[in-house]
């Protein structure tokens, strides 16, 4: 009954001690597991949420204080929230966008033509948004966010739920826009592949804190991430210890290893096993992002304990 008259709030810090600078023309991946505070950061940078403490400057402005001015200079795409008009054809949504941002007709036509061609929108430009597939809709969302020539493009999980082909198209497009038009790109994702193909720089957060800021290759190197190797044999060679990889579990015919050193290649492992062990199949897996972060975080904790 008490909750009828009073409301109790519990505060959750979504972003804490996170500091970074991004220069014009950069492409930055903002990475972290669910609930790490990625979306909160995007929402603060775009002026939707007001930070309770700290300093935030986008293009020299505090976003939430100059929301309208900020809005004209940025483009935002949410993977899970559509900005297109559900009942209208894609073209009409774009036209409303043109009026909202007062885009001069010539520039609008030019952008629309170029982006539509790059992302292959022409076949469904006259179809209502509700009839589009997720991949088509996402491509339309990205094009719309770029029509007014924003200086910064924010993308919150732009490839979520897309199939491989659509993901690839979106990634190539974004990398090209960044390279050719100099649009600064800031994107959040779960998918390491997004970052590899679009963003030279990576910012990683976990549990509201910044845990890494640098190039992707440095992340792998600095964390000592383990690649997983699975060997399948035609006949069980017995426990097989290797110099290049550490045996983590043994199922007889199937043996699982972890490769802990970055400089070890598959060729090194194969050379060590040799030709006479009846090796049937091999699978080498790159660690997925959850694993990368877990490894990194565990590493940090143990480092803190031993220090």
């Amino acid at each position: 009954m008490k909750t009828l008259v009073t409301t109790e709030y519990s505060e959750v810090e979504a972003v804490r001690d996170v500091s970074f600078d991004i220069s014009a023309g950069e492409a930055v991946g903002y990475l972290g597991p669910n609930g790490a505070g990625k979306s909160t950061m995007i929402k603060m940078m775009t002026g939707i949420l007001v930070p309770s403490a700290g300093e935030l400057s986008i293009l020299g402005r505090t976003p939430h204080q100059h929301r309208m001015a900020n809005a004209r200079d940025i483009g935002v795409v949410f993977g899970q929230r559509s900005q297109l008009w559900w009942d209208l054809p894609v073209r009409d949504s774009f036209d409303l966008h043109r009026r909202i941002y007062d885009i001069p007709a010539a520039r609008y036509e030019g952008n629309l033509a170029q982006f539509s061609e790059l992302l292959d929108l022409t076949p469904f430009l006259d179809r209502a948004v509700r009839q589009l597939s997720l991949g088509q809709r996402m491509r339309a969302e990205i094009v719309m966010a770029l029509l007014h020539d924003p200086k910064i493009l924010f993308l919150d999980e732009p490839t979520i739920g897309l199939d491989v082909v659509a993901k690839d198209a979106v990634r190539k497009f974004l990398a090209r826009i960044n390279r050719e038009r100099g649009v600064t790109i800031i994107l959040t994702t779960h998918d390491l592949q997004d970052i590899e193909s679009i963003c030279p720089r990576l910012i990683m957060v976990d549990q509201a804190r910044l845990i890494f800021d640098g190039a992707l290759k440095d992340l792998r190197a600095s964390m000592g991430t383990r690649r997983r190797l699975t060997l399948e044999f035609a006949s069980d060679p017995g426990p097989l210890d290797l110099q290049t990889a550490r045996l983590s579990s043994d199922e007889g015919l199937l043996k699982h290893y972890q490769i802990e050193r970055e400089d070890v290649s598959l060729v090194d492992v194969l050379a060590e096993i040799g030709r006479d062990r009846a090796l049937k199949d091999i699978v080498l897996e790159e660690p997925n992002i959850e694993e990368v972060i877990r490894t990194f975080y565990q590493g940090r904790n143990t480092a803190a304990v031993t220090a």
């Binding site: 775009t46 939707i48 929301r67 309208m68 949410f78 929230r81 900005q83 909202i100 941002y101």
Partner: peptide, 12 residues
């Protein structure tokens, strides 16, 4: 639904 966020992003 949180769609209001989308409107906070537009200069209208």
């Amino acid at each position: 639904t949180g769609d209001v966020a989308v409107w906070l992003l537009k200069p209208v």
